[in-house]
Computed example of a mutant assay.
Amino acid sequence: MGELLTLASRDVGDVEETWRQFVPSAALQKVDPRTFGFSWTSAAMPGLSVVNYRLAASVQSAIDPDDQLMACRVASRGAWVGTPGGDLNAGLPWLALDGPTTARWQQQADVRAFVFDRAEAQDQARCMAGDDRFALQSSTVGASPVSRDLAAHWERVFQHVAGTLFAPGPDSAIIEAELRRHALHTTLAAFSPAFVSALERSAQRTAAPRTVRRAIAYIEQHAHQAITVDDVATAAGISPRGLQYAFRRALDQTPMEYLRRQRLAGAHAELQEATGAAVSEIAQRWGFASPSRFARHYREAYGRSPRETMRGH
């Protein structure tokens, strides 16, 4: 899913060349080539690249992103990460936004990163926060995570997003859109108290049935497309957080739960037609990356498994 790239090499030049496909400012400054080994996996989609690589060598590297936002973790004993403003905790994820960031480690490191297009990330952040003034800059986004709990959550989300994108399977624009939103929301929540505050300010705590009706109409019309909660909120004329409150009050469910129900209904219709497609293909087409999770939601909705529905027609 996404544009996958895998590479294994013992050539020092391959590391820098590959990194610069995703972060043009990346540079290796000090490399001990005696024990060098390089294993890379990445997935690229519009607005987001997900990178996971292992580098066996003593290395110093540097990045200075301009039009990008990069959240990264260098997992290595004895690692050091620094910025002009001071050293960062190398045991936690860190974020590069404005100005250079340098990392150094001995022997071996596992490096994992989300690399966002900065302009697209800012547009999506404003949509999520319901604040057209929110800007991705050093005054609103920090280099260090807000807390260890949020840092650990970022790590879990990275593993989920990377695991889904790196797994073989058909492309799904729906799943990619959800993963892109999930990665950005988690990154901003982990590194930007200003983003979290904007989310709270945008909350609408009163019922908005007309807004909910507009949202429902949009979901039912576009459930087969790669829409997210942000798109639904924009169509309804309300912030995503406000839409959450409105749905809870009016329907006792979230917009995401309603969207999932509509996508389950679409998958159910395909299964009833028994077109010859595999259950996993139908699930992917309707935005369910995990076959087991799809089967669980489907059984809860229809009282039987997807395969039982397919066999019955």
Rank of each mutant, 00 (worst) to 15 (best):
S39E: 14
F114I: 05
F134R: 08
L55Q: 09
C127A: 11
A26M: 05
L55G: 06
R104V: 14
V81K: 03
L95D: 00
D117R: 10
M70E: 00
A135M: 14
M128G: 03
D123G: 11
P84T: 14
D64H: 05
A103F: 01
L136M: 13
S144F: 13
D149Q: 14
M45T: 05
T101Q: 04
A125G: 03
Y53M: 08
V146L: 14
A125W: 01
D66I: 04
R73S: 04
P33F: 11
F38N: 09
V31E: 02
Q137K: 09
A121E: 07
I63Q: 07
G47A: 10
Q107G: 00
S138D: 13
L55E: 08
D67P: 00
L69N: 03
W105Q: 09
L97P: 08
S58V: 00
P145V: 06
D110E: 13
P33V: 15
G99C: 06
R20H: 01
S139V: 15
G86E: 07
T83M: 06
S61Q: 06
Q106T: 02
A135Y: 03
N52Q: 12
D149W: 05
F114A: 08
M128I: 09
D131Y: 10
A129M: 10
M128T: 13
T101R: 01
Q137N: 14
L48T: 04
V81I: 12
P33S: 12
G142D: 10
P100Q: 04
W105L: 07
A56H: 08
A119R: 15
C127I: 05
L136S: 11
A113R: 01
R148V: 11
F22W: 08
S42Y: 01
R118V: 02
A143M: 11
A44F: 01
P65F: 03
G86R: 10
P46S: 05
A135T: 13
E120R: 15
A119I: 07
W40A: 13
C127D: 05
S42F: 02
